[in-house]
Amino acid sequence: MFSAWLVALVATMGAVFIGEIMGQTPCVLCWYQRIAMFPLVVTLGVGALAGDRNSVLYSVPLAVAGAGFATLHVLLFYGIVPEAIQPCSAGPSCSDEAMMFFGLVPLPVLSLVAFSAIVVFLVPVLRSRRL
C-alpha cells in the first residue's frame, strides 16, 4: 500500500508542478484524472499509516476510474478516438504539443502508467484482505 501511495504522491506533485510552476492549464480529461488521483494520496496515505487495508476499498475504484480516463486521453492524444467524440472542445486541447512532459513523454501516458501502477500495487493488498 505504501508503494501505491508513493506513486499517487509523485503523480499529484507532478500535476501540481505542471499546472502551477510550468503554468500549463489542464484540459478536461486532465481534470477528471486529477479528481481521481488527488484523493488517492489521502486514502492510501491514511491506510498505509494506520495499517488499515480497508482503504483499498475506496482506492481501487478511484484508480480504475482514473485509468479509464487516462486510457481515453491516450487514445485521444494519438488520434485513435474520432474527432466527433472528443471531450475537449472547450478550453485547452487534450492532444496538442503542450501535452508533452519536457517534450519527451505525453502526459496522458504518464498518467496511465501511474494509475496502472497503483492498481498493480493494490491488487495483492485487496487479495490479502479477503483471506
Rank of each mutant, 00 (worst) to 15 (best):
L29A: 02
A117W: 01
Q33L: 01
V120L: 07
S95Q: 11
I118P: 13
L9Q: 00
H73Q: 00
F17P: 06
C94A: 12
A8F: 04
H73A: 05
R34E: 15
H73F: 12
I35E: 09
A63H: 05
A70Q: 08
F69R: 07
R129D: 09
V113N: 04
L57R: 11
F102K: 08
A67I: 12
M22T: 07
I21Y: 11
L57D: 10
S93I: 03
A70W: 07
E83P: 00
S111D: 12
A36H: 06
P106H: 02
F69E: 06
S128T: 15
V120P: 06
M13T: 14
V56F: 09
L44S: 00
P26E: 13
L29R: 03
V28H: 13
Y32E: 05
M13S: 15
R129G: 02
F101M: 03
V119L: 13
P26C: 14
L44N: 04
G45P: 05
A36R: 04
F102T: 04
D96G: 06
H73E: 12
R130M: 12
G68V: 02
L49M: 15
L72F: 11
L126F: 14
F17N: 10
G47F: 11
E97G: 00
V64H: 10
R130A: 06
R129L: 13
V41Y: 10
P92M: 09
T43I: 09
M99C: 04
A67Y: 12
S93W: 06
V113G: 04
V60Q: 11
A84G: 02
V74C: 15
